[in-house]
Design a protein around this nucleic acid. Structure first.
Lengths: 109, 109
DNA sequence: ATAGTTAATCGTAATATTGCAATATAAAGT
DNA sequence: ACTTTATATTGCAATATTACGATTAACTAT
């Protein structure tokens, strides 16, 4: 019915899914790459760099912020965004766990 | 308009987004974890293990397969799924690249 | 105060996703 | 051939996502 049955999964699975969903869009990947590249946090520059309208960028930033992956600080008339290390590391750790649990086995299909 | 403007992003950004979207759901995370744990590939067991209906599981498996992350082989009456190492490694490499490009800086907001 | 700049929010249209009942397909056993 | 078992497909309802024009909020500068 359009809504995920979160109650049947573990807290960890749901957390990871939320963080991944935040990253699972080319615009948000591009935004993160931009923020990381210009480690001095940017903001309205994203509207110029990517070819998306201002409300669209603002919405993508909001989703990244809701997932906790970035944080924004008001700086005069503009807003400065940057990576939020704790959650960024949490995502990295969760993914490491997932990838490390797999190794190629011979008895596979 | 509900559809992503893929044409304004790089091929890499779009590829990564597709793979991430495939993983960005608790049910599909759970499926991947199950497949990895029982390295001997399973299938209808997923319907019993997770609390989702058979068509729903089948659909999630299809999405993972479309993204190339898993592969399915018909084995008599049932189907055996397992990780598809090339794409799995591609995802791991792309994510490593993203995470390695970031390091905590002092001059942030 | 007024004007300019920057970003968030609202409202809306188009499309995608999630989940499942019902049905179809396909192989295996009787 | 018929039944059982296992999975895929279809169709549908509920909800979510994507994108943007229009507007609002908030701070700065004149």
């Amino acid at each position: 019915m359009g809504l995920t049955k979160t109650e049947i999964f573990t807290e960890e699975q749901n957390r990871l899914a939320v963080m991944l969903k935040a990253i699972a869009h080319p615009a948000r990947i591009a935004i993160l790459q931009e923020i990381i590249k210009s480690n001095t946090c940017i903001c309205g520059d994203l509207v110029n760099d990517l070819g998306l309208a201002q409300p669209t960028i603002s919405q993508h930033l909001k989703e990244l912020k809701n997932a906790g992956l970035i944080q924004g600080t008001i700086e005069g008339v503009s807003v400065c965004y940057c990576i939020n290390p704790p959650v960024w590391n949490e995502l990295q750790d969760q993914l490491s766990g997932l990838f490390n649990s797999f190794s190629v086995k011979a008895d596979c299909c």
